[in-house]
Design a binder for these strands. Structure first.
Lengths: 267, 267
DNA sequence: TGACATACGGACCAGATTGTACATTGACGG
DNA sequence: CCGTCAATGTACAATCTGGTCCGTATGTCA
């Protein structure tokens, strides 16, 4: 390569960091070309290489406070919003960095890569809904009332967390590849199924629920009805001019969904 | 620009199309830089500009067949798959080009930009499902039977077209921004609502349907239940180990969904 | 107080990706 | 045949973007 290469740099030209000059090189002998790194250029051209290094803009330079936990959570919160809005490929690390109080460097310091950050965001989001469900107590009531309460909790949570809904949609577009790597999530989700099974068993014993529809079916049905309203509200609104997030519609649908599930479960 | 610019080209250098040489330029006076176009370089440097032109690799050079319509449709089909699998930002124009029988150039020739291509793909996909629905005749039967048939048609179509489902999810992540630009789509979708209204009206007249749930509610419910099974099958499978696309589950759910809607509508 | 590990900032690199410049080739009317 | 224009192929160019280099600051423990 060396002998096939010739370089030329302007008079008074310094090839270096933040200089006003830009240099270019020519190759002979093949179709490929490439610009040189500064270090290569330095060696090849024997240029005075002085990195000017900015003066730290003295004025508005607040004292740095080390706070690893806050930094980490700041990154996660900002990233959740970014990934939920733009997807994994659409999300921009630079944009996350700009919105944070810290720098892009820290994303890589704490999470290693964009993909790893996405995975962490996903895990945190799933943990959110499941622990929220787990915290609501509803054992006392009748099976019918317990089920209605469970439905309403799901409805309310999904209404209140469109970011989570988006993340689930996005993850499905990825064939749940990243979710599959988060083993912890699975055990969290078993809980809600166990709970549903419990309610269903009680209802069947009392003769108020049929037995050819199992807990997973019911969970799917509840999820489907609640999820769609949030996930697809934009296309629905564009196509049919009905705003699914308006209070009136929300109240109506909340009752309707409960009723649909309960009616279906009647023997 | 002219006076701030100095150029240099190698001895015996021809700056031109497919030449072995590459030229570089230096700017003075500001931080920006840019390489020159060939044509600019030609003018500025007074270089002998002779485009060498590749010899057409004689051997495997099949005769070109002009076929604009086929080319266009080839692009659209390939792009549909790509966008459905990767989303708008995740899709790669180069990857589409590679899968096609034609070149990337043609995408820009016919569609202008990646985004415009996406918009066309979206319109075509929506047109697909609505015309498919419009083609099924189901006026003869009783309201209950007509509704059941409509549900099953929707169910079957969405099962058979996961690409369409993905595109809808993707479009919702974009807040339906691109769908909103496709005015034609809206009128297509009104048709199915009109049809539902018709069935509901007949059913109410016969006293078999309640009247506090309207066509849009019913459409949402049907869509939600059918859509979720396809859209969220991956996360569902990972979390609960139930394959929603298996024939057994499909049959079960198809019946269950019809029943859920019909039971809800009963007075 | 000073050494060491952890936390941090910002320029900048390298490769990926969209889009374009510029050429040739095919089809078709005259 | 020949001019013209739509259709097509190839090699770039411009830019965007994930990720890293290298240097500095902060805290803490002996």
């Amino acid at each position: 390569m060396g002998e096939n290469l010739r370089t030329s740099v302007w008079d008074e030209g310094r090839v270096g960091y933040r200089t006003n000059r830009v240099y270019f090189v020519l190759f002979k002998g093949d179709l490929n070309y490439s610009s040189l790194r500064r270090s290569e250029a330095k060696a090849l051209c024997n240029i005075d290489y002085r990195a000017p290094m900015k003066k730290p803009s003295s004025a508005r330079r607040t004292k740095r406070r080390n706070n690893p936990d806050a930094t980490k959570q700041d990154i996660l919160n900002t990233a959740t919003e970014e990934f939920a809005n733009y997807g994994l490929s659409g999300a921009r690390v630079d944009r996350i960095a700009k919105k944070m109080r810290t720098s892009k460097r820290m994303i890589y310091y704490y999470f290693g890569s964009k993909e790893a950050l996405y995975r962490t965001v996903l895990e945190q989001a799933y943990a959110g809904i499941r622990t929220s469900e787990a915290e609501t107590r509803l054992d006392s009531a009748s099976p019918t009332e317990a089920l209605r309460q469970l439905i309403e909790v799901t409805f309310d949570y999904e209404e209140a967390h469109p970011d989570f809904i988006n993340l689930v949609s996005i993850e499905n577009l990825h064939h749940a590849r990243y979710l599959a790597k988060a083993a912890s999530i699975r055990s969290l989700n078993i809980v809600i199924i166990k709970r549903l099974e419990d309610i269903l068993a009680r209802g069947r014993a009392e003769g108020v629920f049929r037995s050819d529809i199992d807990a997973l079916d019911v969970h799917m049905m509840i999820s489907a009805l609640c999820f769609f309203r949030v996930a697809n509200r934009h296309t629905f609104n564009v196509l049919f001019s009905r705003d699914l997030s308006s209070p009136r519609v929300r109240t109506h649908h909340k009752r309707m969904i409960s009723e649909a599930v309960l009616r279906l479960l009647a023997p």
